[in-house]
Simulated scan of single mutants.
Amino acid sequence: MKFQLLLWALALLMKKAARKNPDFTKQLEGKNFAFQLQTEDGKVTRHFVIANNSIRSKGKAHKDPAFTISFTDAATGLRILTSKDKNAFMKGIQDKDIKISGDLSKVMWFQSISKYLKPRKKK
């Protein structure tokens, strides 16, 4: 349940960044594809559609995602996506806790936008 909530919150953060952060919006320019994050068994799945400099998301599988990131289970996905360790994602791939299918260049793009999705520290 927590992993499902995290994916939903990620969608909200992306939508907000698309509306309010010009640097994030630049990252969306010219992009037109879908991707999804899920558990390996598919019980928890959320897809994200990037189009027209905006983001839509649904809590179900997409028929043709450009890439899919699958975590062995919900607890592993939650642990990796919320880790403060910058190498958690790469370690997850090495440990086979994460499986990636599809266009790796778009996965790298997704990794690059993650810096825009962190809550800002209060001054």
Rank of each mutant, 00 (worst) to 15 (best):
N87E: 10
K86C: 06
D85V: 04
A88T: 01
H62C: 11
H62E: 12
A88I: 01
G77F: 03
A61R: 11
T76K: 13
L81M: 15
K91W: 00
S83K: 04
T82N: 14
F89K: 01
A75L: 15
F71H: 04
K60N: 13
D64H: 13
I80L: 12
S83N: 07
G77K: 03
F89W: 01
K86L: 13
F71P: 04
T72P: 07
F89R: 00
S70G: 09
D85R: 10
A88V: 00
S70W: 05
I80N: 06
S70A: 15
I69N: 00
D64A: 15
T76A: 15
L78A: 12
F89D: 01
K63W: 10
K60F: 07
T82A: 09
L81N: 07
P65G: 03
F71N: 04
L81G: 06
R56C: 09
T76N: 11
L78H: 13
K84T: 13
A74K: 07
G59C: 05
F89V: 01
F71E: 06
F89S: 00
T82E: 11
N87H: 10
A74H: 05
K86A: 14
D85E: 12
G59Y: 02
F71R: 02
L81K: 08
R56L: 13
K63I: 14
K58A: 12
A88N: 02
D85L: 07
S57Q: 03
S70H: 05
F89Q: 02
K60Y: 05
G77M: 05
T82K: 12
M90V: 10
K84I: 12
S70N: 11
T76W: 07
K58R: 14
G77L: 06
R79P: 05
A88E: 03
S70R: 15
T76G: 08
A74M: 05
K91P: 00
L81H: 06
K58Q: 12
I93D: 00
R79G: 13
S57Y: 01
M90H: 07
S70Q: 13
T68P: 06
T68D: 05
K86M: 11
K86T: 11
N87V: 10
A88H: 02
K58F: 11
K84D: 15
N87T: 09
D85H: 09
M90G: 06
I93L: 14
I93R: 04
D85S: 10
F67Q: 01
R56D: 10
K84V: 12
H62P: 03
G77Q: 03
A74Y: 02
K58W: 07
K58Y: 08
I80A: 08
D73G: 06
A66C: 08
K91M: 07
D73P: 07
G92A: 01
K86Y: 08
S83F: 08
L81R: 05
A75G: 14
S83L: 03
K60P: 01
R56F: 11
K60V: 09
K84R: 12
T76E: 13
S57P: 00
F67M: 04
K91C: 01
